[in-house]
């Protein structure tokens, strides 16, 4: 009897899990296996036969200047965006948590960049940074100078991409910091005030440690999001002025696979991306997880 009930439970479990499991197997697990195999072949997406080339793609990658350039750009982009956004958004979270007039409107505006379609936001930023049509040009012209053409210079256009990434990530993180701050135990602060701790000491010794889980969560999600930057590159710079000046890893992956039809090489590229991402996340985990204290 009980065994019969147990088997019914098992069957129900399978029934509930199967639809999603089939999709995961088809569109997530199988592609990884297939991608691993493709990375050992030379294939152009069209030919009926694949030529197996062993580790050639991986060796080629190590000597490919474009690989190092896009890896470097992505590292600079992700590091800057994630770290600077934490500083901005933590400060902004503190500000949004104060009892001030118009706070509801501020909170709504602060979140908008995150929900705005990146393709459309990128378009707006092209205009904002435009030396003639952007609002900054009004400031420049007041001083009688011509503004820089951000998107025509290699170093500045990477800066432009970082700016947009920062804008979006700050919006996302600040709302989470705000929510975290609102959930902090007030007794601790009252006790600290009685003990004579200054406001800044309270932030350093109370708020930051208590916000550990939120900071950790935002670092991890921020890193994952930043390494995937694609939309802004595609709309704003297309990896230029001279390719791959401002190209990033995913954009280059797309270029290799769907513009240059190097499916095998692109797969090796994708696999390395996977390994690097996992590596970075493990490093973050080992550096931070032990220092984070989850309450309750």
């Amino acid at each position: 009897m009980t065994s019969c009930r147990k088997h019914r439970e098992w069957l129900t479990f399978l029934g509930f899990v199967t639809p999603n499991a089939v999709l995961f197997l088809t569109f997530t697990y199988w592609p990884i296996v297939y991608s691993a195999w493709l990375s050992f072949t030379d294939w152009d997406l069209l030919r009926p036969t694949h030529e197996t080339v062993g580790l050639d793609n991986y060796l080629k990658l190590l000597g490919d200047a474009r690989f190092w350039r896009v890896l470097g750009n992505t590292a600079i982009y992700a590091t800057t965006v994630v770290i600077v956004a934490q500083v901005f958004s933590f400060t902004l979270g503190l500000l949004l948590n104060m009892k001030l007039r118009g706070q509801q409107i501020f909170r709504t505006v602060a979140f908008l960049p995150h929900v705005t379609m990146t393709a459309a936001a990128a378009l707006v930023w092209v205009l904002l940074l435009h030396p003639q049509y952007g609002p900054l040009s009004a400031v420049y012209s007041a001083f009688g100078v011509r503004g820089p053409n951000w998107l025509d210079s290699a170093s500045m256009s990477l800066g432009a991409l970082i700016l947009v990434g920062l804008w979006k990530e700050t919006a996302f993180a600040s709302l989470f910091y705000l929510a975290g701050l609102q959930g902090l135990p007030q007794e601790c602060y009252e006790a600290a005030t009685i003990d004579g701790a200054s406001k800044s000491a309270q932030v350093r010794h109370l708020t930051i440690p208590l916000m550990g889980p939120t900071i950790f969560f935002l670092l991890v999600t921020g890193t994952i999001a930043a390494t995937k930057a694609f939309d802004t590159v595609a709309i704003m710079t297309e990896g230029g002025p001279v390719y791959p000046d401002t190209s990033m890893y995913v954009y280059h992956l797309y270029t290799l696979a769907f513009r240059e039809y190097q499916a095998g090489y692109a797969s090796a590229f994708a696999f390395v991306f996977f390994l690097v991402t996992i590596g970075v996340l493990i490093l973050q985990w080992r550096a931070l997880a032990r220092r984070v204290h989850y309450g309750e």
């Binding site: 147990k6 439970e9 098992w10 129900t12 479990f13 399978l14 509930f16 899990v17 999603n20 499991a21 995961f24 569109f27 997530t28 697990y29 199988w30 592609p31 990884i32 297939y34 991608s35 493709l38 997406l45 994952i224 390494t227 995937k228 694609f230 995913v250 992956l253 797309y254 696979a257 499916a263 692109a266 797969s267 994708a270 696999f271 991306f273 996977f274 991402t277 996992i278 996340l281």
Partner: peptide, 28 residues
């Protein structure tokens, strides 16, 4: 719902969050 080796299966599903969608572009 009861099922043997549930935790391992759950981890298998959750681990896909670590896999960048971009890896699946060419195969898909």
């Amino acid at each position: 719902i009861q099922f043997p080796a549930k935790t391992a299966l759950l981890l298998l599903v959750l681990s896909t969050m670590m896999i960048p969608d971009e890896m699946k572009l060419v195969p898909n």
